[in-house]
Nucleic acid binder design. Structure first.
Length: 700
DNA sequence: TATGCGTAGT
């Protein structure tokens, strides 16, 4: 009797453990980690599967350290426990940790190998993945390993290597075909993708989804929609893919219709819909959906925090973060970005320091924050502390140095870093351009192309801007041809840079030609053309285009007025200039900046109306810059006004103590007035301050 | 009932 009773108890206990294990896994799949944890903690008996399930739940929900703690303290590990922990590291992007466990294992199965290979391919390190693949004994090489390796190559765009393995593979599965297809669609090679898709022996819903996603990413929403509608049995992923396609193209109504028609909504589809509204800054609708959704996960909370950050409601974002049941790194990073966007670096830093193990995105956000506000030293000290840097970490540092004009250090970082991506090159090139090192910018452009990188919008804009400033028409022309060949001819930013380049190289008709062929011009296009005519000295055309712009309902901005006012100044149209200046402040409510004042001082000064110019400088709301005093001093020199000239020279000697031209102007002014003693003292002052006159250098 | 390969959401 007694043994039988005991065994019934045993059976009951086992089935209870079994059921609870299932429950833990199910809860984990819905992101209900707290409930899973509670069940786990309250279980009177646990077996190895219980621990493995709980580890997997933690790892897949971003709580990798909780997973590891459990792994370390569990009583009896089996091979699945080790594999699950490696899978956790794969999920959390921690290759080194995964490799550490992999190396410690005394026994490995096909799961172990596939996991480790995938760890490397996710990082794009196909070489290391291939080493493992080749090390793997033939009898353990199953389809999953092959597929992982093929997918690794394909995603990196190594179609040759992928195809070679694919052709070698004997028992191809639908996953093998889809892995190849994903390579094409991911890179945006949609014509190759389409050809491969048509060659496929069998297709499943994933194949169709890949095509839809590929077309969405390529911006071809019509084809995406066609493929979506042709999909035999669209699943939730198909619908979310299409929904995001609409959302990314601002077609929120169509996205919403798709969402409303979905009968099988899950947490991802809710999150996607919420994200769509966040992207449109329709935070109220996002919040409404958030309150309505049946299950929320970390992504839902993070999306809402991001939404509030986007519309500048930091206080609300803080409240959401406080209410969030388990604050993951992603959500805290969203909050950090919010503080950074509002220049509240100390608060950003406080949150950052509280996070136990910030991930690479979080570190990079912080570093980028410091770089953007010019606090490069703090950025650098974080970079040094960072356990694992990626390309973006280094890129942020390059950006920081470029921002603060330290191009030598930017170059040093660029040379020190290992793998460089397009952003690394672009950051360096635009850094050179912004710091006036135009030749370096163009040389780097060339090196980049030689390195096999394809220039993009940003590269072309920097390159063209450099040509503009160097008046390098020939290179500019070559760049224009490359722009057309690379398919950026319809890009607004590139077109604007082309207008500017042609205008500054004196080819105003070419500039106008580019302007005419832009689909929808923006204020920058108009400004480029206006400044182009202004700097070519054609005041009639400048004003005419300005009028055309206003007639077409484009609102001029401060740059527009710099162009128009400088044209007036060059042509001596004093009254027109004064009227425009008044219209700018009174009709267009544009607060004048230093450049506007410099134009006005120049305008009045050239006309000899020095008193008015001086009065304008004294009455300006902002601190006069060296450029403004310089313009005044120059005018005083021309008209021999010693009194105002001295004031201007005095200010200039404080603002630019090392610039020789300032002293030369004052000295010439004194000489014309016959004040030879002053001439001498100015020259002594100039030598004392170390301002050397450069031969052949003129103020203009 | 726990772990791997191809598709969706921050």
């Amino acid at each position: 009797m007694i043994p039988r009773l005991k065994s019934i108890g045993e059976i009951g206990r086992r089935s209870q453990v079994f059921n609870q294990n299932v429950k833990i896994t199910q809860l984990g799949k819905c992101g209900r980690i707290e409930e899973a944890t509670r069940i786990f903690n309250q279980m009177p008996h646990r077996n190895t599967v219980t621990y493995n399930s709980m580890i997997s739940v933690y790892a897949k929900n971003g709580r990798i350290s909780d997973a590891r703690n459990l792994f370390d303290k569990m009583p009896r590990k089996n091979l699945v426990s080790w594999n699950t922990m490696i899978a956790g590291y794969l999920h959390g992007d921690k290759v080194d940790k995964a490799r550490e466990l992999f190396d410690k294992m005394t026994q490995r199965d096909d799961f172990t190998w596939t996991l480790m290979i995938t760890c490397y391919t996710r990082k794009g390190d196909v070489e290391k993945a291939r080493v493992l693949f080749d090390l793997l004994p033939e009898k353990k090489k199953n389809r999953a390993c092959w597929n992982a390796m093929i997918a690794g190559y394909a995603k990196k765009g190594c179609f040759g290597d992928a195809r070679k393995l694919f052709d070698e593979m004997e028992d191809k599965s639908i996953v093998s075909w889809n892995s190849m297809l994903a390579g094409y669609t991911h890179i945006g090679e949609m014509s190759l993708g389409l050809r491969f898709f048509e060659e496929m022996d069998e297709r499943d819903v994933v194949s169709w989804n890949l095509m839809v996603d590929g077309f969405v990413n390529a911006g071809d929403l019509d084809s995406a929609w066609t493929f979506f509608q042709r999909t035999p049995d669209p699943n939730i992923v198909s619908k979310v893919t299409m929904l995001c396609g609409f959302s990314r193209n601002g077609r929120i109504m169509e996205a919403r219709r798709l969402f409303d028609e979905m009968e099988d909504k899950n947490v991802v589809s809710w999150n996607a819909m919420i994200a769509a509204y966040v992207q449109q800054c329709q935070i109220d609708e996002a919040i409404w959906l958030f309150t309505q959704m049946p299950e929320k996960n970390a992504v839902s909370w993070t999306t809402i925090i991001n939404g509030y950050v986007r519309v500048g409601k930091l206080h609300e974002a803080e409240q959401v973060l406080n209410k969030m049941p388990y604050k993951n790194v992603g959500a805290q990073t969203a909050m950090i970005s919010g503080y950074i966007q509002n220049r509240r670096m100390d608060e950003a830093r406080r949150i950052f320091e509280k996070i136990g193990t910030p991930d690479v995105v979080c570190w990079n956000t912080m570093i980028a924050g410091y770089a953007h506000c010019g606090r490069v030293d703090e950025a650098l000290s974080l970079l040094k502390r960072m356990p694992q840097k990626n390309v973006a970490s280094w890129n942020n540092m390059i950006f920081g140095y470029a921002q603060t004009g330290q191009m030598d250090k930017a170059v040093a970082v660029f040379e020190e870093m290992g793998e460089k991506n397009l952003v690394s090159w672009n950051t360096l090139i635009s850094g050179f351009t912004q710091n006036g090192l135009f030749t370096n910018a163009l040389t780097t452009f060339l090196l980049m192309v030689q390195d096999g990188k394809k220039p993009d919008q940003s590269t072309f804009v920097s390159g063209l801007c450099s040509c503009a400033n160097l008046a390098a028409l020939e290179i500019g022309n070559q760049l224009h041809q490359t722009v057309v060949k690379s398919g950026y001819a319809n890009d607004l930013f590139v077109s604007n840079a082309l207008i500017s380049m042609y205008a500054k190289c004196g080819r105003i008709l070419s500039a106008e030609y580019v302007f005419k062929y832009i689909d929808s011009v923006d204020v920058i296009s108009w400004n480029s053309l206006i400044s182009g005519y202004a700097s070519n000295g054609n005041v009639e055309k400048t004003v005419k285009i300005f009028q055309e712009m206003t007639v077409k309902g484009v609102k001029p901005d401060e740059v527009t007025f710099i162009g128009v006012l400088s044209a007036c100044s060059h042509s001596g149209l004093v009254d027109d200039g004064l009227n425009l200046f008044r219209s700018m402040t009174e009709d267009h409510l544009i607060e004048p900046v230093a450049e506007h004042y410099a134009c006005m001082v120049c305008l009045l000064g050239r006309a000899g109306r020095l008193e008015e110019a001086f009065q304008m400088v004294r009455e300006m709301k902002i601190e006069p810059t060296a450029g403004i005093w310089g313009a005044l001093l120059y005018a005083c020199r021309v008209y021999g006004n010693l009194e105002i000239g001295r004031v201007a020279a005095e200010k200039l000697s404080k603002l630019e103590p090392h610039k020789s031209s300032n002293y030369v102007l004052l000295s010439n002014l004194n000489a014309e007035a016959g004040r030879w003693d002053e001439v001498e003292s100015t020259r002594i002052l100039m030598t004392d301050r170390g301002a050397e006159k450069q031969p052949g250098w003129s103020w203009i």
